Amino acid sequence: MRSIEEDRMELELKGKRALVTGSSSGIGAAIARLLSAEGAKVIIHGRDAAKTRAVAQKLIDAGAEAGFVTGELSREEDCAEVAKRAVEFFGGVDILVNNAGGMAAANRPDTTAESFNRPWLQTPWDDWRWTYEQNVGSSVRLIQALAPAMIERGWGRIINISSASATQTEADLADYQPAKAAITNMTTGLAKSLAGTGVTVNTVTPGTIATEGVRNGFVEWARQLGWETQDWSEIERRFTSEVIPQPTKHFGRPEDIARMVAFIASPQASYMTGSNYRVDGGQCRSIN
């Protein structure tokens, strides 16, 4: 693992207080790590207390100031408690990164590889409701809880993590794609609503990011396709050339998203608001 000093970008974030939701692993953990490398005080959030505490402890061991909170953000009462405890850690939140998300199928204990991506017409409304609560509801509630204090201080950053599937849809994923589209859309309206307050609001849209879970999924997909190789570099090359074509010919890494988030979160990005910043290796075929 690279050291904090090696990751530093000098973005004037020293002393800023950040809450990164869904940061006990994957993209969220990478965002939290880079913000802490830039000198921010970071609050890790997750649903699994042991995993969430472990990520925070790694940051503390590296010399950063960090804390952790747990909660199921699809529930209103948990959102309120997460916001309250986040403020208590360092006396406020200057940077809110709404990274927590996901889709209902991934959270059902009975989900199998075959039932994960249900056909659109067979996706029950309960799945839509859960996915909207997890992605849109959690973001809205945390914004409403934390933005007023940012406005009062005259400075703040709200960064919502969307998905390439918000603007480039595929068959099915019925509940997930519209939820991510709502994230991208609500960002622009909120940015206009907060005009002149010193609080900026932006979306970061990842393409396919090779987290540990995603890599495992692609290895299994390759097996189902009958590919004999189990070598990740070969699997990645074939998928980005043959199945999910993109100019970079490789998937993104969590650090790619973290760098964009850290810059938008910084004082250097004061002229950037209401925008959607794609970090997708050219995967999306649209202009924006």
Rank of each mutant, 00 (worst) to 15 (best):
S3E: 02
E6C: 06
D7W: 13
R17D: 06
L19N: 11
S23R: 02
S24D: 08
S24A: 11
S25Y: 03
A29M: 07
I43M: 10
G46R: 10
R47K: 11
R47G: 15
D48W: 00
R53W: 01
A66V: 09
T70D: 07
L73W: 01
S74W: 12
S74N: 15
F90A: 04
G92T: 10
V93A: 09
D94F: 06
N99Q: 09
A100D: 09
A104S: 14
A105Y: 01
E114D: 14
L121M: 13
W128A: 09
R129Q: 12
V136I: 13
A149N: 13
M150L: 09
M150K: 07
N160G: 12
S165C: 05
L173H: 11
L173C: 03
D175M: 06
Q177C: 00
A182E: 03
T188M: 14
L190C: 08
A191D: 08
A191S: 14
G198F: 02
T200E: 02
P206G: 05
T208I: 15
E212R: 09
N216V: 03
A222Y: 00
R223L: 02
E228W: 02
D231Y: 00
T248D: 06
E255A: 14
Q268C: 08
G274Y: 04
N276C: 08
D280I: 03
D280S: 05
G281W: 04
